[in-house]
């Protein structure tokens, strides 16, 4: 494994300032580009995590340490980047405090501060819809990790990434323009057979596309997404929307998510083609009242 003098990089992953020090130039170059959106903080950092990559047994392997603890060993060069990223997520999940991490994409409607929180199982199309949203002028919080304190919502703006593809598998046309060179992945099989997958297509959002300040959860809309043979968009009631947010949270939520739901603020979208799905969603949203920035006052009755 080719090593050089270690270089350092600071990334702001929600409230965790993550300092990475690594002697593998290719891994650091890719890390810097994939996580370019995390070079400035969206919310004030609450703690610092350090990730140190060091040589083990000469140049045959690299240790990955998180805050001084060994968390992984990279045996081959292509393993370094994904293992650094695994440590980044580990540091984020360890962050305590009244926060809910959602496995959800979050993009912001053009021309207004209304975040759309896209929830759904793996493969439902969070990244595909996030990519299509960028191409329609939305601003980007995340395609994967949405964070909330119950009042505000923000994201972890890593590059838009897709599932690894086998080398023989053709990319869908909509991903053809994505940069294939940033990420190469190796998976070690159960019998030690190493299977090399194709590159993970990525799209690194540029500066003007990034949403770099938290938005009010009260202005959000929750969209439950699913791939289907037809495109349908319909309202979703508050209870179902809350159930989806529960399903999307890492661990049971620790705080109220009631600010995310309300009349006309949740939808179910089944989509066949992402641009068509977003058009249908935009049309339905335009027919519903905009969320209110002020909480309503309730008369007893």
């Amino acid at each position: 494994m080719a090593h050089s003098e270690p270089t350092e990089l600071s990334l702001f992953i929600s409230e965790v300032e993550t300092r990475v020090r690594c002697p593998v130039p290719d891994a650091m170059a890719a890390l810097s580009e994939l996580w370019a959106g995390c070079r400035v903080p969206i919310v004030p950092p609450a703690r610092v995590a350090t990730i140190e990559v060091g040589a083990v047994e000469g140049d045959r392997a690299c240790s990955i340490l998180l805050d001084g603890d060994l968390v992984a060993v990279a045996e081959q060069p292509p393993d370094v980047l994904p293992l650094i990223e695994a440590a980044i997520y580990r540091a984020l999940y360890a962050q305590r405090g009244p926060r809910v991490l959602l496995h959800a994409a979050c993009v912001v409607l053009p021309g207004c501060d209304e975040p759309l929180v896209l929830v759904g199982p793996s493969g439902a199309g969070k990244s595909s819809l996030a990519l299509a949203a960028l191409e329609r002028g939305y601003r980007y919080f995340t395609d994967e990790l949405t964070v909330t304190d119950g009042t505000h919502v923000w994201g972890v703006p890593r590059a838009v990434q897709f599932e690894p593809v086998h080398a023989s598998q053709a990319l869908p046309a909509r991903l053809a323009a994505s940069d294939l060179g940033l990420y190469a992945l190796r998976i070690r099989g159960t019998d030690d057979h190493v299977e090399t997958l194709g590159a993970v297509p990525v799209r690194v959002p540029v500066a003007h596309e990034l949403m770099l300040q938290p938005l009010l959860a009260r202005m959000a809309r929750v969209i439950r997404i699913e791939r289907a043979l037809t495109t349908v968009c319909e309202p979703l009631d508050s209870l179902d929307a809350l159930a989806e947010l529960h399903e999307a949270s890492f661990g049971a939520p620790s705080l109220s998510l009631g600010t995310f739901v309300g009349r006309g603020r949740a939808f179910r979208l089944t989509w066949r083609e992402p641009a068509e799905g977003l058009s249908r969603l935009e049309s339905l949203i335009s027919q519903t009242p905009a969320p209110s920035i002020r909480p309503p006052t309730h008369e007893p009755g």
Binding site: L242, H246, G258, V261
Partner: peptide, 21 residues
């Protein structure tokens, strides 16, 4: 955990034991 829905005044209680809302 209870989610208080500002807009409607409703409350959604999370029953962790039964895993239901």
């Amino acid at each position: 955990l209870a989610h208080e829905v500002d807009e409607t005044g409703e409350v959604v209680v999370f029953d962790e034991t039964g895993n239901r809302l």
